[in-house]
């Protein structure tokens, strides 16, 4: 089967799981934001199942509806069927180390499939999940109802953050289409004095980090900042092109560590791990990212020239 077909199948499965969440939320009469939350998951399910057949404009409108729902606090965590500590402790004793098999299997399968077959990394996640769910059910003897209620529980725990990476990617495309990058690069290069290596190197590194923080993506920043700052203020002064450009990219990654715009790295773990403080990951990373950015400037200055 081709990558595209499998991807489409996996999108449909994700969409159906979202419909399942919508259904569960709808049945839960205690949820104060019942209708809004149901709509949220149903709209997402629709985009995942039918996305390839819907015109972009319609999906855009649906996204705005989602925005109105979340802005007016109409999307809330409903009642879920959480496991009791006694049940888990008892099963942990019975299963022993076998309980790790699914976790290890997913990781191992994703790596093997991506490395040794022609399937892409994202398709590999889907295939690995499909194989592992069968093994998991065999190991635990859990029934279909447990699968449904645990899917519901996990999806609701991740909640709206699940779609943040996608949404920010869309914003990035929009920024590029509206010409945001060019405006920034022009502005920065206007007030850097020429002829000073340290200033040039600092501007290249800090520019990469700042621009990455805004765009949430170091790749988007790299071409813009390299053309706008790297070439005139670093390369033209005799800097080693390969060393400086490589350092500039990781200087950008220091910015990635500092921005909520890089949602899949900084916001998604918050949701996945259920961290109370939304900015906890960024805060922890700042203590490494900021000194490391200064190290980048030093490395570019000493190794690049």
């Amino acid at each position: 089967m081709s990558n595209e077909l499998l991807l489409e199948i996996f999108y449909v499965v994700v969409g159906l799981l979202m419909y399942l969440v919508a259904f569960n939320v709808f049945r839960c009469k205690e949820n104060q934001a019942r209708i809004g939350t149901t709509l949220f998951w149903a709209i997402l399910g629709t985009i995942f199942v039918f996305g390839s057949y819907l015109p972009g404009t319609i999906v855009g409108i649906l996204l705005l509806v989602i925005g109105v729902l979340t802005a007016t606090k109409q999307v809330k965590h409903g009642k879920v069927n959480a496991p009791t500590a006694e049940f888990s402790a008892e099963k942990a004793k019975a299963l022993g180390n076998k309980v790790f098999i699914p976790s290890v299997l997913i990781a191992g399968l994703v790596i093997c499939i991506a490395k040794f077959t022609n399937f892409s990394g994202t398709v590999a996640i889907g295939i690995a999940a499909a194989i592992t769910i069968v093994i998991t059910l065999f190991l635990t003897k859990a029934d279909a109802k447990t699968v449904a209620s645990d899917s519901d529980r996990m999806f609701q725990a991740v909640g709206v953050t699940a779609i943040l990476p996608q949404l920010l990617a869309s914003l990035g495309t929009l920024f590029t289409a509206a010409g945001v990058g060019d405006v920034i690069a022009n502005n920065i290069s206007n007030f850097i004095p020429e002829g000073n290596i340290l200033i040039g190197v600092s501007a290249y590194c800090i520019g990469m980090a700042l621009f990455t923080m805004i765009m949430g993506n170091a790749f988007a920043a790299f071409s813009v900042i390299t053309v706008g700052i790297g070439v005139p203020f670093v390369f033209m002064q005799g800097g080693n092109v390969i060393v400086c450009a490589t350092l500039a990219l990781t200087a950008g990654y220091c910015g990635t560590l500092l921005t909520p715009m890089a949602a899949n790295f900084n916001m998604l773990p918050v949701a996945l791990l259920n961290i109370k403080n939304k900015n906890a990951v960024i805060k922890y990373q700042a203590y490494v990212a900021i000194p490391l950015l200064l190290v980048h400037i030093a490395l570019m200055y000493f190794l690049g020239f």
Partner: peptide, 11 residues
């Protein structure tokens, strides 16, 4: 996520 959810339930 569903797989992790089940594994967590089972200890």
């Amino acid at each position: 996520l569903p797989i992790i959810g089940i594994c967590e339930r089972y200890g």
